[in-house]
Structure formats: structure tokens, C-alpha cells
């Protein structure tokens, strides 16, 4: 049988992306700044990883204006939530295989 490690989702093979998804699983509509503070990241670092998650359709971007200030919030898409759950199950499977 193929080792479960090969079933791990490539979209989540980076700590930051995993972190972003974890925050979005627990909260709806998180702003860029809140995301940045919670995960303790720089603007550029977070932006590139969020863009990667957006590209595969796991994260939805909502752009709004509060007065004249742009306010961007992020939400995990249904697809993203499913993929994240699958990723968690695979991690648990890995634990059982190794343990």
C-alpha cells in the first residue's frame, strides 16, 4: 500500500498555508491584518501564501470598502474546508501508521 504521506495535500505543505486555513476554519471573514497578527507574519509572506490558497479555490476573498478604506476579508470555501478536513484525517492516519 502507498504510504499515507503521498495523500497529503500539496496545497498545505507549508506551515503558513496550514496556519491560514486553521484560522479560517475557526473563524468566518477574517481580515488581512487579523490574519497577519494571529500568525505573526509579514505582509508579503502572508499575501503570497493566501494568493496560493485562493488560486486553488480554498479561500474566498471578499473586498469591501469601509468609507474610503479598502477592507479585505478571507473566508474558507466549502471546498477548502473539505480539503482541510481530509488533510487532518491523513495526518491522523500517518500517526497510526508510524505509531
Amino acid at each position: 500500500m502507498k504510504h499515507a504521506i503521498h495523500q497529503l495535500n500539496k496545497a498545505f505543505d507549508h506551515r503558513v498555508r496550514l496556519g491560514v486555513m486553521a484560522v479560517l476554519m475557526a473563524n468566518d471573514g477574517v481580515s488581512f491584518n487579523d490574519l497577519k497578527e494571529t500568525l505573526d507574519l509579514t505582509d508579503g509572506n502572508l499575501a503570497s501564501h493566501v494568493a496560493a490558497l485562493e488560486k486553488v479555490g480554498y479561500v474566498q476573498v471578499n473586498k469591501q470598502f469601509v468609507g474610503k478604506k479598502p477592507n479585505t476579508t478571507y473566508t474558507a470555501s466549502a471546498e477548502g474546508k473539505q480539503a482541510f478536513q481530509d488533510h487532518l484525517s491523513t495526518l491522523e492516519k500517518l500517526l497510526r501508521q508510524d505509531g
Binding site: V23, A26, L95, D98
Partner: peptide, 21 residues
């Protein structure tokens, strides 16, 4: 040995979800 530590990942995910909400 795979280069992924599933336990550490799960622990971190749990902590982030807890901390952010």
C-alpha cells in the same frame, strides 16, 4: 522516515484554531 511530523502539525493547527477564535 517521512519529512512530516504529523503530531506537531496537528498540535499546531489545534493551537492556532483555539488562539484565533
Amino acid at each position: 522516515k517521512p519529512a512530516v511530523d504529523p503530531l506537531a502539525q496537528l498540535t499546531e493547527i489545534r493551537s492556532i484554531m483555539e488562539r484565533s477564535s
